[in-house]
Protein backbone atom coordinates (compact mmCIF):
# COMPACT_ATOMS: atom_id res chain seq x y z
CA UNK A 1 0.00 0.00 0.00
CA UNK A 2 2.94 2.27 0.59
CA UNK A 3 3.28 4.35 -2.53
CA UNK A 4 5.66 7.25 -2.08
CA UNK A 5 8.45 7.16 0.46
CA UNK A 6 9.06 10.37 2.33
CA UNK A 7 12.42 11.81 1.30
CA UNK A 8 13.81 11.54 4.81
CA UNK A 9 11.93 9.10 6.96
CA UNK A 10 13.42 10.18 10.27
CA UNK A 11 13.24 7.43 12.84
CA UNK A 12 12.24 5.05 10.06
CA UNK A 13 8.75 6.54 10.05
CA UNK A 14 6.90 7.16 6.81
CA UNK A 15 3.83 9.30 6.29
CA UNK A 16 2.27 7.79 3.18
CA UNK A 17 -1.18 6.20 3.42
CA UNK A 18 -1.00 2.84 5.14
CA UNK A 19 2.65 3.26 6.15
CA UNK A 20 3.54 1.40 9.32
CA UNK A 21 6.21 -0.88 10.74
CA UNK A 22 3.57 -2.95 12.52
CA UNK A 23 4.15 -6.58 11.71
CA UNK A 24 0.80 -7.90 12.96
CA UNK A 25 -2.42 -8.02 10.96
CA UNK A 26 -3.40 -4.45 11.84
CA UNK A 27 -5.95 -4.26 9.01
CA UNK A 28 -7.97 -7.14 10.39
CA UNK A 29 -9.93 -5.20 13.02
CA UNK A 30 -10.99 -2.53 10.56
CA UNK A 31 -11.89 -5.07 7.89
CA UNK A 32 -14.05 -7.10 10.27
CA UNK A 33 -15.75 -3.96 11.56
CA UNK A 34 -16.46 -2.75 8.03
CA UNK A 35 -17.82 -6.15 7.04
CA UNK A 36 -20.05 -6.33 10.13
CA UNK A 37 -21.41 -2.81 9.68
CA UNK A 38 -22.12 -3.31 5.98
CA UNK A 39 -23.78 -6.66 6.58
CA UNK A 40 -26.09 -5.69 9.46
CA UNK A 41 -26.97 -2.17 8.39
CA UNK A 42 -27.32 -3.42 4.83
CA UNK A 43 -29.74 -6.13 5.90
CA UNK A 44 -31.78 -3.75 8.05
CA UNK A 45 -31.90 -1.13 5.28
CA UNK A 46 -33.19 -3.66 2.77
CA UNK A 47 -35.81 -4.80 5.27
CA UNK A 48 -36.81 -1.21 6.03
CA UNK A 49 -37.48 -0.56 2.35
CA UNK A 50 -39.39 -3.81 1.85
CA UNK A 51 -42.07 -3.09 4.43
CA UNK A 52 -43.23 -6.72 4.21
CA UNK A 53 -43.31 -9.61 6.74
CA UNK A 54 -43.09 -7.37 9.78
CA UNK A 55 -45.84 -9.12 11.69
CA UNK A 56 -46.53 -12.64 12.90
CA UNK A 57 -49.29 -12.37 15.45
CA UNK A 58 -48.47 -11.46 18.25
CA UNK A 59 -44.91 -10.73 17.20
CA UNK A 60 -43.71 -7.52 15.60
CA UNK A 61 -40.35 -6.91 14.00
CA UNK A 62 -38.20 -4.11 15.47
CA UNK A 63 -37.84 -2.88 11.91
CA UNK A 64 -41.46 -1.79 12.06
CA UNK A 65 -41.99 -1.14 15.76
CA UNK A 66 -43.59 0.94 17.01
CA UNK A 67 -45.70 1.41 13.88
CA UNK A 68 -47.01 4.92 13.25
CA UNK A 69 -48.69 3.88 10.00
CA UNK A 70 -49.03 0.52 8.33
CA UNK A 71 -50.02 -0.32 4.77
CA UNK A 72 -53.75 -1.17 4.48
CA UNK A 73 -53.12 -3.60 1.64
CA UNK A 74 -50.58 -4.80 -0.86
CA UNK A 75 -47.89 -5.78 1.64
CA UNK A 76 -47.65 -9.41 2.70
CA UNK A 77 -47.19 -9.92 6.43
CA UNK A 78 -47.98 -6.28 7.19
CA UNK A 79 -48.75 -5.06 10.69
CA UNK A 80 -52.56 -4.94 11.21
CA UNK A 81 -54.09 -1.50 10.80
CA UNK A 82 -55.61 -1.78 14.28
CA UNK A 83 -52.09 -2.13 15.76
CA UNK A 84 -50.67 1.01 14.12
CA UNK A 85 -50.78 4.21 16.16
CA UNK A 86 -52.43 6.26 13.43
CA UNK A 87 -53.82 3.45 11.31
CA UNK A 88 -53.19 3.05 7.59
CA UNK A 89 -50.73 5.06 5.53
CA UNK A 90 -52.39 8.38 4.52
CA UNK A 91 -53.16 9.32 0.93
CA UNK A 92 -50.42 11.97 0.86
CA UNK A 93 -47.70 9.41 1.34
CA UNK A 94 -45.47 9.69 -1.78
CA UNK A 95 -45.98 6.88 -4.25
CA UNK A 96 -42.34 6.36 -4.99
CA UNK A 97 -41.68 5.40 -1.37
CA UNK A 98 -42.70 1.99 -0.05
CA UNK A 99 -45.30 2.07 2.71
CA UNK A 100 -42.92 1.01 5.44
CA UNK A 101 -43.40 1.84 9.14
CA UNK A 102 -39.60 1.70 9.41
CA UNK A 103 -39.43 5.23 8.06
CA UNK A 104 -40.84 6.67 11.27
CA UNK A 105 -39.89 5.73 14.83
CA UNK A 106 -37.44 2.90 14.04
CA UNK A 107 -35.37 5.49 12.18
CA UNK A 108 -34.52 7.05 15.56
CA UNK A 109 -32.27 4.06 16.18
CA UNK A 110 -30.16 5.03 13.17
CA UNK A 111 -29.49 8.50 14.59
CA UNK A 112 -28.63 6.95 17.95
CA UNK A 113 -26.17 4.42 16.59
CA UNK A 114 -24.70 6.82 14.06
CA UNK A 115 -23.73 9.37 16.71
CA UNK A 116 -22.77 6.78 19.36
CA UNK A 117 -19.24 7.25 20.72
CA UNK A 118 -18.47 3.60 19.96
CA UNK A 119 -19.80 3.53 16.40
CA UNK A 120 -18.00 6.78 15.69
CA UNK A 121 -14.72 5.06 16.51
CA UNK A 122 -15.77 2.07 14.41
CA UNK A 123 -16.59 3.96 11.24
CA UNK A 124 -13.94 6.67 11.56
CA UNK A 125 -11.43 3.85 11.58
CA UNK A 126 -13.05 1.37 9.20
CA UNK A 127 -14.49 3.73 6.57
CA UNK A 128 -12.63 7.04 6.94
CA UNK A 129 -9.26 5.42 7.83
CA UNK A 130 -8.84 8.17 10.38
CA UNK A 131 -6.72 6.36 11.51
CA UNK A 132 -6.85 2.98 9.68
CA UNK A 133 -5.40 1.38 12.84
CA UNK A 134 -3.18 2.58 15.67
CA UNK A 135 0.24 3.78 14.51
CA UNK A 136 -0.73 3.30 10.86
CA UNK A 137 -0.74 6.46 8.75
CA UNK A 138 -4.08 7.54 7.29
CA UNK A 139 -4.71 9.30 3.98
CA UNK A 140 -3.01 12.66 3.78
CA UNK A 141 -6.18 14.71 3.89
CA UNK A 142 -6.94 17.82 5.87
CA UNK A 143 -7.99 16.75 9.35
CA UNK A 144 -10.45 18.74 11.47
CA UNK A 145 -11.44 16.09 14.00
CA UNK A 146 -14.85 16.87 15.44
CA UNK A 147 -14.37 20.63 15.28
CA UNK A 148 -16.05 21.40 11.96
CA UNK A 149 -18.27 19.23 9.79
CA UNK A 150 -18.68 16.69 12.56
CA UNK A 151 -19.83 19.17 15.21
CA UNK A 152 -23.31 17.67 14.99
CA UNK A 153 -21.96 14.60 16.84
CA UNK A 154 -22.24 16.78 19.95
CA UNK A 155 -26.00 16.35 19.80
CA UNK A 156 -25.77 12.63 20.56
CA UNK A 157 -27.82 13.13 23.72
CA UNK A 158 -30.83 14.15 21.63
CA UNK A 159 -30.53 10.90 19.73
CA UNK A 160 -30.43 9.25 23.15
CA UNK A 161 -33.78 10.82 24.07
CA UNK A 162 -35.25 9.32 20.90
CA UNK A 163 -33.71 5.96 21.70
CA UNK A 164 -35.14 5.99 25.23
CA UNK A 165 -38.60 6.57 23.78
CA UNK A 166 -38.04 3.72 21.33
CA UNK A 167 -36.88 1.48 24.15
CA UNK A 168 -40.11 2.03 26.09
CA UNK A 169 -42.07 1.12 22.95
CA UNK A 170 -40.02 -2.03 22.35
CA UNK A 171 -40.54 -3.20 25.94
CA UNK A 172 -44.26 -2.56 25.47
CA UNK A 173 -44.23 -4.63 22.27
CA UNK A 174 -42.25 -7.38 24.05
CA UNK A 175 -44.88 -7.58 26.81
CA UNK A 176 -47.63 -7.54 24.22
CA UNK A 177 -45.99 -10.62 22.73
CA UNK A 178 -47.18 -12.54 25.81
CA UNK A 179 -50.78 -12.13 24.62
CA UNK A 180 -52.19 -13.64 21.47
CA UNK A 181 -55.77 -12.58 20.73
CA UNK A 182 -56.11 -11.62 24.38
CA UNK A 183 -54.90 -14.94 25.69
CA UNK A 184 -51.78 -15.14 27.88
CA UNK A 185 -48.97 -17.44 26.82
CA UNK A 186 -45.57 -17.34 25.30
CA UNK A 187 -43.52 -18.63 22.41
CA UNK A 188 -39.97 -18.60 21.13
CA UNK A 189 -40.81 -15.31 19.43
CA UNK A 190 -41.74 -13.80 22.81
CA UNK A 191 -38.33 -14.72 24.20
CA UNK A 192 -36.62 -13.36 21.10
CA UNK A 193 -38.42 -10.04 21.54
CA UNK A 194 -37.76 -9.81 25.29
CA UNK A 195 -34.07 -10.50 24.73
CA UNK A 196 -34.07 -7.84 22.04
CA UNK A 197 -35.45 -5.23 24.44
CA UNK A 198 -33.02 -6.39 27.15
CA UNK A 199 -29.94 -6.14 24.93
CA UNK A 200 -31.05 -2.73 23.68
CA UNK A 201 -31.45 -1.64 27.31
CA UNK A 202 -27.92 -2.80 28.08
CA UNK A 203 -26.65 -0.84 25.10
CA UNK A 204 -28.69 2.30 25.85
CA UNK A 205 -27.96 2.53 29.58
CA UNK A 206 -24.23 2.20 28.94
CA UNK A 207 -24.36 5.22 26.61
CA UNK A 208 -21.81 7.90 27.41
CA UNK A 209 -24.38 10.68 27.24
CA UNK A 210 -26.67 8.79 29.62
CA UNK A 211 -23.75 8.12 31.97
CA UNK A 212 -22.96 11.83 31.93
CA UNK A 213 -26.51 13.10 32.35
CA UNK A 214 -27.51 10.78 35.20
CA UNK A 215 -24.43 11.48 37.32
CA UNK A 216 -21.11 11.81 35.51
CA UNK A 217 -21.58 15.56 35.20
CA UNK A 218 -21.33 15.96 38.99
CA UNK A 219 -18.02 16.48 40.78
CA UNK A 220 -19.40 15.48 44.15
CA UNK A 221 -21.27 12.22 44.58
CA UNK A 222 -21.48 12.36 48.36
CA UNK A 223 -22.83 15.88 48.86
CA UNK A 224 -26.54 15.17 49.21
CA UNK A 225 -29.09 12.38 48.94
CA UNK A 226 -29.75 13.10 45.27
CA UNK A 227 -26.04 12.89 44.43
CA UNK A 228 -25.71 9.63 46.30
CA UNK A 229 -28.55 8.12 44.29
CA UNK A 230 -26.97 9.49 41.13
CA UNK A 231 -23.69 7.84 42.09
CA UNK A 232 -25.41 4.46 42.37
CA UNK A 233 -26.95 4.78 38.91
CA UNK A 234 -23.69 6.13 37.50
CA UNK A 235 -21.78 3.11 38.77
CA UNK A 236 -24.23 0.74 37.08
CA UNK A 237 -24.04 2.75 33.89
CA UNK A 238 -20.24 2.68 34.12
CA UNK A 239 -20.36 -1.13 34.33
CA UNK A 240 -22.42 -1.26 31.16
CA UNK A 241 -20.32 1.45 29.56
CA UNK A 242 -17.17 -0.64 29.85
CA UNK A 243 -19.01 -3.28 27.79
CA UNK A 244 -20.54 -0.79 25.40
CA UNK A 245 -18.85 -2.11 22.28
CA UNK A 246 -19.90 -5.68 23.05
CA UNK A 247 -23.48 -4.60 23.69
CA UNK A 248 -23.48 -2.46 20.57
CA UNK A 249 -22.71 -5.53 18.45
CA UNK A 250 -24.89 -7.98 20.37
CA UNK A 251 -27.90 -5.69 20.25
CA UNK A 252 -27.34 -4.92 16.56
CA UNK A 253 -27.10 -8.60 15.75
CA UNK A 254 -30.20 -9.38 17.80
CA UNK A 255 -32.30 -6.62 16.23
CA UNK A 256 -31.50 -8.13 12.83
CA UNK A 257 -32.16 -11.63 14.13
CA UNK A 258 -35.49 -10.62 15.69
CA UNK A 259 -36.55 -9.15 12.38
CA UNK A 260 -35.40 -12.31 10.58
CA UNK A 261 -37.26 -14.55 13.02
CA UNK A 262 -40.51 -12.62 12.67
CA UNK A 263 -40.14 -12.63 8.91
CA UNK A 264 -39.58 -16.39 8.82
CA UNK A 265 -42.58 -17.11 11.06
CA UNK A 266 -44.70 -14.64 9.12
CA UNK A 267 -43.84 -16.28 5.82
CA UNK A 268 -44.56 -19.68 7.28
CA UNK A 269 -41.02 -20.88 6.64
CA UNK A 270 -40.56 -21.82 10.28
CA UNK A 271 -43.14 -22.73 12.92
CA UNK A 272 -42.99 -20.82 16.16
CA UNK A 273 -43.02 -23.10 19.20
CA UNK A 274 -45.50 -21.65 21.66
CA UNK A 275 -48.15 -22.33 24.29
CA UNK A 276 -51.14 -21.02 22.35
Amino acid sequence: MTTATAPRAIGGHKDSFGATTRSDRWWQGGALTAAGLIFFFGYLTVRAFQGTWLWANPYISPTGAPPLFTPASGYAGAIPVSHAWLGAFPAWWPRFLPQSPAFFFPGLAIAFRFTCYYYRKAYYRAFAASPPACAVAGPRLKYRGETALLLFQNLHRYALYGALFLLVCLWYEAFSAFFKNGQFGMGVGTLVMVLNAALLSGYTFGCHSWRHLIGGRKDCFSCDAGSKRAHGIWKKSTWLNSRHMLLAWLSLFWVAFTDFYVMMVSRGVITDLNTW
Binding site: R120, K121, Y124, C134, G145, E146, T147
Partner: peptide, 27 residues
Protein backbone atom coordinates in the same frame (compact mmCIF):
# COMPACT_ATOMS: atom_id res chain seq x y z
CA UNK B 1 -11.15 18.58 22.97
CA UNK B 2 -12.89 18.66 19.57
CA UNK B 3 -9.75 17.49 17.75
CA UNK B 4 -9.97 14.06 19.31
CA UNK B 5 -12.16 11.78 17.22
CA UNK B 6 -12.41 9.19 20.01
CA UNK B 7 -10.77 6.43 18.00
CA UNK B 8 -9.13 5.17 21.22
CA UNK B 9 -5.56 4.36 20.19
CA UNK B 10 -4.36 6.18 23.31
CA UNK B 11 -6.41 3.79 25.44
CA UNK B 12 -4.99 0.80 23.57
CA UNK B 13 -1.36 1.66 24.28
CA UNK B 14 -1.57 3.01 27.85
CA UNK B 15 0.65 0.76 30.02
CA UNK B 16 -1.31 1.82 33.10
CA UNK B 17 -4.60 0.79 31.47
CA UNK B 18 -6.19 4.16 32.10
CA UNK B 19 -9.55 4.44 30.32
CA UNK B 20 -8.24 7.57 28.62
CA UNK B 21 -10.96 7.94 26.01
CA UNK B 22 -13.98 6.56 27.86
CA UNK B 23 -13.29 7.89 31.34
CA UNK B 24 -11.45 11.15 30.66
CA UNK B 25 -11.93 12.52 27.14
CA UNK B 26 -15.56 11.59 26.46
CA UNK B 27 -16.80 12.82 29.86
Amino acid sequence: SGWCNITRCCTEVCPEHIGITDNAIIP
